Simulated scan of single mutants.
Amino acid sequence: MFTGIVQGLATVASLTDRPGLRSFELAFPPGFDSGLEIGASVACDGVCLTVTQLPGPGRACFDVMQQSLGLTTLGALATGSPLNVERAAKDGAEIGGHPLSGHVDCLGTLLSIRQPENNHVLRIGVPASHMRYVFAKGYIAVNGASLTVAEANRQERWFEVWLIPETLRMTTFGHKQVGDVLNIEIERSTQVVVDTVRDALDERLGPLLPALEKLLAQQGQSLDDLGAALRLPG
């Protein structure tokens, strides 16, 4: 498990392609690899990877399957690419963000960047299949960073996050440009509540469900908004 609090920036030192597999060697910031062992988990841009080799101080190697390369941004990394990294949380660790699994749910696209004074606002587009789980004031993980959703537009399928200077300093977000692809992990408790509400309504209403959806749409709402209203605290 991870907390979504990025602990530093790593750099791709080298990569090697083999049939169905790509191996990365990452260079970590000073002290990041203290006590790191083979078999340990590290979130790399939000993707949980397992340490396979420790070639030297400040370095670690990871193997990534072809499927994961296709479903995440890792397939686009090249030598010198920076990425957000976080060590797996230990028992009793403070959860400064929200619990993450390191399993990417979908890819988002950076649609726009605004820079009001002392802030950096990212508007990110996501597929409709996962936008149903994104709500204003809720949590979401972007490239492994736990962020709070400032605004969400379900019809246009985008959400916004506001980043303070410290977040930009500790992550790769300050280097991102419009059109860049990002790893998205939705918040699990929100997903559970939304899916449970949809399943319960489907079971109870059956053929009446389309009529309810139409009525809600006329009011600018959806079944997913009902799920948001019933979201569990925290």
Rank of each mutant, 00 (worst) to 15 (best):
T11D: 15
G125N: 13
C61T: 10
L168G: 11
V126K: 08
D33W: 01
P99W: 13
P55H: 09
Q155N: 12
A217S: 15
R157K: 10
A211R: 13
T109V: 05
V64Y: 09
K176M: 10
H103Q: 11
L9A: 03
Y133P: 01
L232N: 02
A13M: 00
D105E: 06
T73E: 11
L226F: 05
Q221I: 07
P99S: 13
A229S: 07
G179I: 07
N118R: 13
L223E: 04
V181I: 01
G108T: 06
E37D: 13
L223R: 07
F24Q: 02
D45A: 14
R59L: 15
N143V: 02
G56M: 12
G39R: 06
E185Y: 04
I113F: 05
Q155K: 15
S189K: 10
A128F: 10
R188K: 12
S41Q: 03
R154P: 01
G220P: 06
L74E: 08
A89I: 12
N183V: 02
A152R: 03
R132P: 00
S68W: 02
R204F: 09
R59N: 01
G138W: 10
L21W: 06
Q67N: 13
V142T: 11
P19L: 04
P55S: 14
G174S: 08
G97W: 03
S14K: 03
L9V: 14
A141S: 13
D224Q: 11
H175N: 14
P210Y: 05
V51E: 02
N183K: 05
V181C: 04
G70Y: 05
A60T: 06
G174Q: 06
E213C: 05
S146L: 06
V192I: 15
W162T: 13
L226E: 04
R87L: 15
P30L: 14
I113Q: 13
G75H: 12
E151P: 00
F2Y: 05
G92R: 09
V194I: 14
T190D: 04
I140Y: 09
L15W: 00
A152G: 03
E86W: 02
V51I: 01
M131V: 07
